[in-house]
Design a protein around this nucleic acid. Structure first.
Lengths: 109, 109
DNA sequence: GCATTTCCTATACATGGTATATCAATACGA
DNA sequence: TCGTATTGATATACCATGTATAGGAAATGC
């Protein structure tokens, strides 16, 4: 494991989606949230793989919900941030924001 | 190559550093810029490896400068964004900002 | 029951991120 | 003038992250 174990880009996106979704965060809704906000066509497998890794690191936890009475309403696996996950996310957002701050888009290309 | 070839997290940081440094972007200054803004202790090898990959993708270009008259003033390799790189950076910043927008830090952990 | 829908799991591979070690070119001082 | 310190770049290898593919599980509706 790296020293200052920083988050990868996609891990950050997933954690941000969790923060937005609150108690309604499961695989499919997470995927939708990211796609809707970034316009990026996210692969569902990538989401679950990342969620597993985040849980292994202790940044998220998950529980199995009740089945709903919708057609195909299989029981969902809900995800949420741990305290450590919230802290890691805040730090990571602060880092990227301080990189963006003061940028002059005019004189780039 | 992926469909919507998105930037990795560190690639994004390096491009942002380039944008800030303008015509004074070379390995060491890029490393310093990232470290100063994020507090993250960046490895110099990681910077060069990432710069190479960005250049391969056509997002940056580089030229070799003149040696300076400082002690150890070896000639530097200067990096800059291409037009495509600037565009990719803008898009990537827009994506992360729209993920951050409207976040309620109070109710996380 | 069998198709259909929603959601999750498994697995394999490609790419990105990081560390270590080493090399190159310059200036300085004994 | 020769070693040594200093600044900067390169090579390489390894592990973590990102992505795609394929398939399995649990519910509904006819």
């Amino acid at each position: 494991m790296p020293k200052g174990d920083a988050l990868g880009g996609f891990e950050q996106l997933v954690l941000l989606a969790l923060a937005h979704l609150g108690d309604n965060a499961y695989g499919v809704s997470i995927r939708q949230e990211i796609a809707a906000r970034t316009g990026r066509d996210v692969n569902i497998g990538a989401v679950y793989a990342t969620l597993d890794r985040l849980e292994t690191k202790g940044l998220t936890r998950s529980r199995t919900g009740e089945p709903t009475s919708l057609r195909g309403g299989r029981s969902k696996r809900y995800f949420e941030l741990t305290a450590e996950g919230a802290r890691a996310l805040e730090e990571s957002v602060r880092a990227i924001e301080s990189m963006i701050r003061g940028l002059n888009w005019g004189e780039l290309g």
